[in-house]
Design a binder for these strands. Structure first.
Lengths: 467, 467
DNA sequence: TGATTTGTGACTTGACATTTC
DNA sequence: AGAAATGTCAAGTCACAAATC
């Protein structure tokens, strides 16, 4: 007979004993998943200790361990030895951020687009490409990892970002998200652990959940992830990789100075982690910002997959990204690219290549920088920036907001009032006590006037929200 | 002390006891993987029984179970209760089939392309699309699952194949392989089991290995998978899905008659399997072949993901496929599409759409059918077809060859003599005692003359091979 | 500081199903 | 036809590590 009287000190979760079928651990995990997904267990809830629940259900405590673990792999829970097991911040919902059909009344400061105003410059080049007399050669199955000529343009482009590589160690894929999916697929297995910033790219959290990668949040400061914190976690558990966006972390806008990169590289090397370096804002940093230095790929070529998307810098709709890797990863990466994509449309890549080789891409970048500068100025008009404001040209801002009990309803509140923004919780893989933020995209409205209206409305709403 | 004297009855695999580290099961799995990958354990080898090996290594027998299981999930092994554990047919190598750079002297009858001669008809349409005045609207992040207008064209196209659906239940992805990856990702978890034909699509085997899906081969006859065999396996173990290519199975060219589809649908429904229906040859069957009937999606809409690629039928390089699913799968599929692709280039889809709406696509199909007919005739000139020859217009043939000790070296033999073809072993997920075959692609040479030379050479080589 | 709480994970036990002989 | 061989899998035991009090 159980020692405690459970009625007096009720557990946070009491599964119905009668609903349990064999195997118990699966059945229990199912009940747990159901209760989380249906809101009976709020994010952050501390679950009953394994032994206590086991006692209550009259089973061995490792049966509970196993049930909890199933849910952990699905990204619903996380456990802390000596402390307890908790429901994850985003257990109950998908945090995927995608472009949605808004009603016309809503101004989208949520999804980060890329100042799509520049796309007409691309249309021109499409017409030029269509006149080429070798179009047929772009329409077959040849060169699954990219036509050599396209790869050369890629290397040319990435050279300005500080990347040195050759055509044998670059491949063309369909955008950065696609590159991430392929890299996870190629180099990681379900159950592996990847270290991430406490706040990290929401779609990375989501794809990790899907592929059953366990994320290990690492503390950071104003220069990004802390090497000591990473090392500590590496000592404590078996970590397989680390995901970083050094050129401008999403959502925090932190740009990692070269010094921090080197310190982190040291730890990454020491523990033989695989680094996924998503350098999506490099085109706004390299050659523009002093202490930017170079990509981490250059420090750790044998351990890094470097991802350079052209979606933010050149054109979002053509879905072209470059992936750079060393010989050790090559065969696995090529195989994964084939398994996921077969290949990326050579027509699209031809257009990007033409943009690069004719110098049009550089003009687009200049224009986007200009727009980013304008967007930033508008933002500063309505909100004060802290001295540690992150990347000056970032396509989005990380705006501290007062703590509120609304919490999960925050996004709803703004949406109902005509603004789409994302709450910091969406970028959490476990939980955090840091102050709440909003991520505010500056690059998604169709013009600056709309952005201005949006930011003004947001600042007004925020004043009301505080009370 | 062990009962048997192991020196007298040596086990097929004797791992070095001293190399074992803790955890034992992982370390053992690693040794096993190494020995398989380095050829010390040939495909088909029977491994020592779990209890015997455990005795030898002085560990509990379920430690061996676990080690074997790790390797099974990676597609290296398969176990049969009561019989033993065996090294898989393709354990040591990747069976991925991709377009490779051949030396000019090699004629490629391996990779199945799609009579790329028709691509110049596509070039024309690209020029037309480039002149549209709404190009910019194709270059942004909007409509990740496809622009409504594009979806309507998709439905229009698939209607001729017998599919009834609406725009809410179709999505656009980047080719059939991409569709498969997304479907696995969306609806299956690592460790799940999927039933397949004994000989099945090599790239499906490969992606399943990567995602740790266990394949369960099901016996078939000249009309495809046997419903009874499927049912038997379903009773025996927990099977989650089934992968079928009813319009023309790759590599066997079997087209499933409507009667068989209905019988299989019955079993699939009874055991609540998820059906992945890759209908890549439907455009060569629907309306052409009498007893083709309709896709299985129409019989089991709630359990089926229907994949319709335009690579084989319209244009291979543009990477566009349509996916049809019911409401129950919708949110998971849309999420997975976003996580893997974000979206498919709307420019490419616009071109495919234009091809469909102007009727050019239909003309391309007609031309491809003509070419397929020619290719088939050429084949019959050099090889006799059995009465159960499979799909008459198939882009490839399944050619019985004499048993030979060369086995794994068969592909090498033909390659060294100027022909790339694939041996039946490449399409096996476990093992089989059925007679050997070659898969001979008819659609990959740049013209019919080259195909003729290739087939002639192949028939000559085959005569020599027999001796 | 040290006992206690709490989670992790490898290995062991034992029931069971199928195949072989 | 039945005993033995063989693989599968859930659940239990146990050692340990980190956090808390």
């Amino acid at each position: 007979m159980p020692f405690n009287s459970f009625d007096h000190y009720p557990m946070s979760w009491k599964p119905n004993k009668n609903q349990l079928r064999r195997p118990i651990y699966r059945s229990l995990a199912q009940l747990l998943e159901h209760d989380i997904n249906h809101g009976f267990l709020a994010p952050g809830t501390k679950l009953p200790p394994q032994r206590e629940l086991a006692d209550y259900l009259d089973v061995n405590f490792t049966t509970i361990t196993r049930a909890y673990k199933l849910c952990e792999l699905k990204g619903l829970l996380y456990g802390v030895t000596g402390n307890g097991t908790f429901v994850g911040a985003n257990a109950a919902r998908s945090v995927t951020i995608s472009k949605e059909h808004n009603s016309n009344k809503v101004i989208d400061l949520g999804f980060v687009a890329s100042y799509e105003q520049t796309n007409e410059m691309v249309s021109e080049v499409i017409k030029q490409v269509a006149e080429k007399n070798y179009l047929e050669q772009l329409l077959n199955y040849n060169d699954p990892s990219g036509i050599p000529h396209h790869k050369l343009a890629a290397l040319n482009w990435m050279q300005t970002l500080g990347i040195q590589a050759d055509t044998e160690h670059v491949a063309i894929v369909s955008g950065a998200q696609n590159a991430i999916a392929i890299t996870l697929f190629a180099l990681f297995e379900p159950g592996n652990r990847i270290a991430v910033d406490v706040y990290t790219y929401a779609n990375f959290i989501e794809i990790s959940k899907m592929y059953q990668i366990r994320l290990v949040p690492i503390l950071g400061d104003e220069h990004g992830m802390l090497p000591d914190a990473l090392e500590e976690q590496c000592q404590q558990m078996n970590i397989d990789g680390v995901f970083l966006m050094p050129s401008c972390a999403n959502p925090t806008t932190i740009m990692m100075p070269i010094k921090r990169k080197m310190e982190l590289a040291h730890v990454i090397q020491k523990y033989a982690l695989i680094l996924i370096e998503d350098d999506f804002h490099a085109f706004l940093s390299a050659g523009t910002i002093d202490h930017y230095g170079q990509p981490m790929y250059q420090m750790l070529p044998n351990q890094t997959v470097y991802i350079c998307s052209t979606s933010k810098s050149i054109c979002s709709g053509l879905r072209v990204a470059y992936v750079v890797f060393n010989e050790v990863f090559k065969s696995k990466m090529i195989k994964a690219i084939y398994n996921v994509n077969v290949k990326t449309s050579s027509l699209d890549v031809e257009i990007i290549t033409e943009l690069i080789l004719t110098g049009q891409a550089q003009k687009i970048v200049e224009r986007k920088k200009q727009l980013a500068e304008e967007g930033s100025q508008l933002f500063r008009k309505y909100f004060s920036l802290s001295p540690q404001a992150g990347h000056p040209l970032s396509f989005f801002r990380w705006l501290p907001i007062p703590q509120s009990k609304k919490n999960l309803l925050t996004e709803r509140y703004f949406l109902d009032n005509g603004i789409r923004v994302f709450h910091s919780n969406r970028f959490l893989s476990s939980f955090s006590k840091e102050p709440d933020h909003l991520r505010v995209a500056l690059s998604s409205t169709s013009n600056m006037e709309e952005l201005k209206v949006g930011l003004k409305l947001l600042s007004e709403l925020l004043n009301l929200y505080q009370r």
